[in-house]
Design a protein around this nucleic acid. Structure first.
Length: 413
RNA sequence: GCCCGGAUGGGGUAGUGGUUAUCCUCUGGGACUGUGGAUCCCAGGAGCCGGGUUCGAAUCCCGGUCCGGGCCCCA
């Protein structure tokens, strides 16, 4: 302990095996679900040109970006999210692939923020991008997948669907500064402040309209009564009826304003119980980004799930692996050979003592294991091994084939 | 970026301006060299970092770091 102790950087975490097993189990479940919808995994670099994220991501993310210059003087950034990188990949690599493309990713992201529960500087996102379609079918599919994942994880959550087109249409005559301030106030739900601000701008009439729209909450029928542009209204109605067919539970919420500026149509968010301020576990929607990165204008829909937030509240437990100790009675090499043979036959954790412990100490050390196979000269010469069930203490004398047979059966159970 | 609250062996803790820092757990070994969990014994391991006050600081003060809670924002 003479040298300086090096701590983890702020907002990062170490994961021990128990935690990793749980994370991998959740990851596996997510992969299974999206793959069952035909999505295939992509992987992009951990860092990209800074520009990729500054072009269209919105102010919120820019302040939090980990940016740096490399030794060649290039401006680079650790990815703060994956939609932009995946769209860059799409533009670079996928020009002639048949549409639509169904991609998913599971990757770490970096944002310079004040760490809290469910908020880290390195965190993981699991998400999908459905690229090349602007039809309601694709939007409903993406929403349904997000819903299925959260449902299968056993989360207590709420899904809200909105459409940024509604507010954008109302605010289209205002300049960027005014409309983004208004959007921000709507997002925060600060209606009093909004009223004040809009009255200052002589926009009282517009405020009343916004107020009507923002307070709407409920199923698709609430849309009917609103005075909206025809195509937006039809779109919301169609996506809702498809979601109904998917048996997805949701409510309409036209006040949803996503933090990223590239969203253009349907947007949605999911909130889970039990996470305090960090309750948003999923966000997504339709966007157009490909043309910003030098590709053709391509409509896409996607979502990202905050993996670490989900981990905080989900109850999934990893499958317990069968644990077998091959215990040596003095001759390590004999036992080692048996252990190697056993590993070829049985899919389990098969472990040997490497501390030179006595037989007694080995059994004591492996007390949490399921089985101990005792291997000494006697066993190897006779071909009859002692297999001890460490939970019950019952010991059986079996030849190697019978040992394999019995353990195989245990693995399945 | 703002406002609170914390930090004592690997984990959980006690204590309080004054010897060698408490207890539990844990880890390794022994009693016990072919059969575990009990018991007993031995060993290991700690006051976040830096500065200040003081004869003396883990304890009081200041700064920093990290963690937790809230705000903001977001996943």
């Amino acid at each position: 302990m003479s040298s300086v102790k090096i701590e983890r950087p702020r907002g990062t975490r170490d994961f021990l095996p128990d935690e990793m097993e749980k994370r991998r189990a959740v990851e596996r479940l997510m992969r299974e679900i999206v793959e069952s919808y035909g999505y295939r995994e992509v992987c992009t670099p951990t860092f990209e040109h800074l520009e990729l994220f500054t072009l269209k991501s919105g102010e919120g993310i820019l302040e939090e970006i980990y940016a740096f210059k490399d030794k060649g003087g290039r401006d680079l950034a650790l990815r703060p999210e994956l939609t932009a990188p995946v769209m860059r990949l799409f533009v670079n690599e996928c020009k002639v692939m048949p549409r639509p493309l169904r991609f998913y990713y599971f990757a770490n992201c970096f944002r310079y923020e004040r760490p809290q529960r469910g908020r880290y500087r390195e965190f993981w996102q699991f998400g999908v991008e459905l690229i090349g379609s602007d039809r309601p079918e694709s939007e409903a599919e993406v929403i349904a997948i997000a819903y299925r994942i959260l449902e299968r994880l056993g989360l207590d959550f709420e899904l809200r669907i909105g459409h940024v087109g509604v507010l954008r249409e109302l605010l289209k005559d205002l300049n960027e500064e005014k409309s983004s301030k208004i959007m921000r106030l709507i997002d925060k739900g600060e209606m009093d402040e909004l009223e004040e601000y809009m009255n200052e701008l002589n926009l009282g009439e517009l405020y009343e309209k916004i107020k009507e729209i923002v307070k709407v909450k409920g199923k698709s029928d609430v849309i009917e009564r609103l005075d909206l542009k025809k195509d937006v209204k039809e779109r919301i109605t169609k996506v809702c009826s498809l979601c109904d067919a998917y048996e997805v539970e949701y409510s309409i919420d036209l006040s949803i304003v996503r933090g990223l500026d590239y969203y253009t149509g349907i947007v949605f968010e999911a909130y889970a119980e039990g996470l305090g301020a960090q309750k948003q576990v999923c966000g997504g929607g339709s966007y157009r980004l490909a043309h910003v990165f030098g590709g053709e204008d391509t409509p896409s829909t996607g979502f990202a799930i905050g993996f670490d937030r989900v981990m905080e509240v989900c109850k999934i437990e990893p499958e317990r692996k069968l644990k077998i100790a091959v215990v040596n009675a003095g001759d390590y090499e004999l036992a080692l050979r048996v252990a190697e043979n056993l590993r070829r036959e049985v899919k389990a954790e098969i472990v040997m003592d490497v501390m030179g412990r006595s037989l007694k100490k080995q059994l004591s050390h492996f007390k949490d294991y399921d089985f101990a196979l005792i291997v000494g000269k006697r066993e190897v010469e006779s071909g009859i091994y002692s297999l001890k069930d460490l939970k019950t203490g019952v010991q059986e004398k079996l030849n190697f084939e019978k040992v394999v047979e019995k353990l195989k059966k245990e693995v399945k159970e």
